[in-house]
Design a protein around this nucleic acid. Structure first.
Lengths: 245, 245
DNA sequence: GGGGAGAGATGCCGC
DNA sequence: GCGGCATTTCTCCCC
């Protein structure tokens, strides 16, 4: 591929805010929050309209290297090869890509103002428990959302039927040791703030790891098997599908 | 763009394990671990040789939607549009992309056997402290790696000059509340395993948040300002650069 | 802008 | 495969 033509197309695309996709063979060197070298291989470079740079290998879901939004990119010829230099001065991050071959270069002015609508998060799970407190236990009475925030980042917070305070920590997937220590931290915070000797801690998650369960029971806390709400599962039998949104 | 030609190119690329890049306008619907809808917009779809699918919007560093390695992908015509259906039956995940326009389609047989060489990780920081125990304090004696692993995932572990056990937790960036609770968990584990009343806990990080510092001192632990080793900074004044590797 | 915490987290290593 | 944990985590929310 003609390097002059590549540089020309690249600069044109960059200045007009197009999204650029480059298939190349080369080496990637990064220096910033850490340091890395990735020896020659075939990769995909993507420069977005916000000047984010992603380097993707032909497998795996994460980029092997990247530069954050607002970075500067310069493509230039260096002896026999192309070099793509990216820098982000405010973040003190630098990347150099030594390009040995260009397989393809494509640029298009992509426009997208949409945001992802997501259901089934931990927040949805907490809302579900506020609306169905019986999923924690009979007689559980959640406090309002206002009061909830007053005590910090506690997912669900309320009283059991004996007027004991209950702190509920939700996890949308299997709860681990850090979920237990997080719950413990919240319970201790409430005890201290309220001057109470007894505050119950409940961990609500679809499942829990054995070690986490051991630590949970050691600390006198409880586990409730609860899964996050799933819009599709709740509505699919009733004719409606996600696609209708 | 001719849809028949697109489908033909796509199927050919997919069956031969090429990496595919598709610039398109359309809607993305996902159902699996959660549920999501993303209304019409211009995006990039990437299918890697391991059949990972990434959907990227024209800004931001993370994919807005994705399907994991090993998913199946089928592109077909549906009335006036194209539909890319992806499914991963073992993971019970599904995605449908309703394509209103194809801006470009490119496929190339990318080959890459290299792994990223990364320096400046938390593990590197722990090794640095093992080799320079004075960074923790004078008289600190780390135990060997074998003994270290015996007690679990503790970063650095040793004795101070008064033969007190010291547990060191490293963070490569600012330490937060969860770093303190993690340290606390390790200290308690060692106390229990060894039957000791006193075990020191040290948090080594470049900095620490105010609340984390408060909790740390509440628990009688200590903070040491230590930054992860940075290969480039250590060698740049001595002529050598990362690029030489 | 910083702190705190979730994420459809992903990826790595160890058992 | 699961468990435990780091990540150049990234992203969002809220102060």
């Amino acid at each position: 591929m003609d390097y002059e033509a590549v540089i020309s197309s690249f600069n044109d695309a960059l200045s007009s805010g197009k999204t650029i996709v480059l298939g190349f063979k080369g080496k990637v060197v990064y220096s910033g929050r850490a340091e890395s070298v990735l020896q020659d291989g075939d990769r995909l470079a993507i420069i977005k309209s916000d000047r984010t740079l992603l380097i993707h290998q032909p497998s795996g879901s994460n980029p092997v290297n990247y530069m954050k939004e607002g970075s500067e990119h310069h493509l230039k010829k260096d002896e026999h090869n192309l070099v793509l230099s990216s820098r982000n001065l405010p973040l003190k991050e630098f990347m150099d890509i030594y390009i040995k071959a260009v397989y393809f270069l494509h640029a298009a002015p992509l426009l997208d103002s949409q945001k992802l609508q997501l259901a089934g998060t931990e927040r949805d799970m907490a809302l579900m428990l506020m609306q169905n407190p019986g999923l924690i236990e009979q007689g559980f009475t959640p406090l309002s959302n206002e009061e909830h925030t007053k005590y910090g980042f506690i997912d669900v917070f309320g009283y059991d039927r004996s007027q004991n305070l209950v702190v509920v920590e939700c996890k949308r997937q299997q709860a681990d040791l850090s979920a237990v220590t997080q719950l413990r931290r919240y319970v201790e915070k409430i005890k201290k703030m309220k001057g109470l000797a007894r505050v119950r801690g409940v961990l609500a998650a679809p499942k829990i790891s054995p070690n986490a369960l051991a630590m949970l029971t050691d600390w006198g806390f409880e586990f409730r098997a609860v899964s996050p709400p799933n819009y599709f599962e709740r509505h699919s039998q009733g004719q409606k599908s996600l696609e209708d949104f």
